[in-house]
Write a protein that binds this DNA or RNA. Structure first.
Ligand code: FES
Ligand code: FES
Lengths: 177, 177
DNA sequence: TAAACGCGGAGTACTATAGTCCGCGTTATG
DNA sequence: CATAACGCGGACTATAGTACTCCGCGTTTA
């Protein structure tokens, strides 16, 4: 019934970072801190994207997530379905069969096929899904890229490098004890 | 965020009955029992349709609801908005401004305009709303009418008449006491 | 071998949905 | 003219979903 939770916003924003990262794995915790969102919550979202074949996971220390395919081949519809789980926009309770004049035994003409009201909702849902299917990760990444200054991708890479260095420093600090 | 609750299904099915009733008022309780749904719950939905100018209410004993306009002039979009209250399909939390490299003070190029991801969702929502806006109560009523046998509208009127008679009988039973 | 990874399950706080109950003011009708 | 049938609104409840957190397991690599 419901749709488009914040998980979708988090997920797609992360995937755009993976486009920028260009095949070097990014961990879910890095992705979370880079965007100022909850690491634990993001960690619940990525396994869904992995199971949908949108992203590929590598375990271990320098592991993380990479896109499983070229961003041109990843549609918004796929992403939303992977995260939300293909819930319908409208779920019909089959009211029409409960009409009192039928007395509990609705005739075939009343319950056959899809209810006309339901059909309208299915058309509306299809319009929405078609729009989502037409949009690709690469297309949106390009329009985001146009807004950012040329130095921005470099800043991001520097921030990510700084994180691994800080981890090394912590290790050196811990070792002599 | 969420959309298309069961209230919408109840509401539209009721409105279709009002099309059939052809300007004779039907009470929310009659509508509920005719369809086997909760009278108390339906009574919460109709005031919304009334305030939206879709339906006109008349108080008193033989009162009830009538369509405020010709069914050709009532779109599904209006009905859904009246009942659900115009909630967006996707509500953007403005993640983009929280990027760690901005350090709490995001630059104008990052927060200006609508986020590209949000823009896609708005387009998808518009597709859905356009489909809903194109559909009218009269159009759906016609396709429902085609499925039902010729005797059905008569059966409905008979059922409604039976209800008022039963009420009269209850009154007679109570009076002699 | 320990710290950094992904993965899954359990648990929590908050909010929305679906539905109930009651009482108010109005209005036809016997 | 009383009463039963109307619409309207507020308060209430129960269930479910959302947005999170926490913990522990197995893997990897520096
Ligand atoms: S019975 Fe579900 S929409 Fe008509
Ligand atoms: S910031 Fe909300 S969708 Fe991008």
């Amino acid at each position: 019934m419901a749709q488009m939770t914040t998980s979708v916003e988090y997920g797609i924003h992360c995937l755009l970072w993976l486009v920028v990262a260009d095949d070097t794995p990014l961990s879910s915790r890095d992705l979370a801190e880079l965007q100022g969102i909850s690491p634990s919550f993001l960690a619940k979202i990525f396994p869904k994207l992995e199971k949908a074949g949108i992203v590929h996971a590598t375990g271990g220390v320098r592991g993380g997530y990479r896109l499983a395919r070229a961003p041109e081949k990843i549609s918004f519809l796929e992403i939303v379905d992977a995260i939300e789980g293909r819930k319908p926009l409208f779920d019909c309770q089959e009211i029409r069969g409960r009409c009192a004049v039928f007395g509990g035994k609705p005739p075939a003409w009343a319950t056959g096929g899809v209810c006309s009201i339901h059909a309208v909702m299915l058309r509306a849902e299809k319009s929405m899904r078609d729009t989502l299917a037409a949009e690709t990760l690469a297309g949106v990444a390009k329009s985001v890229g146009r807004k950012a200054p040329a130095a921005f991708p470099h800043d991001i890479r520097a921030w990510l490098e700084a994180r691994v260095s800080k981890r090394g420093a912590a290790r050196k600090r811990a070792a002599p004890s």
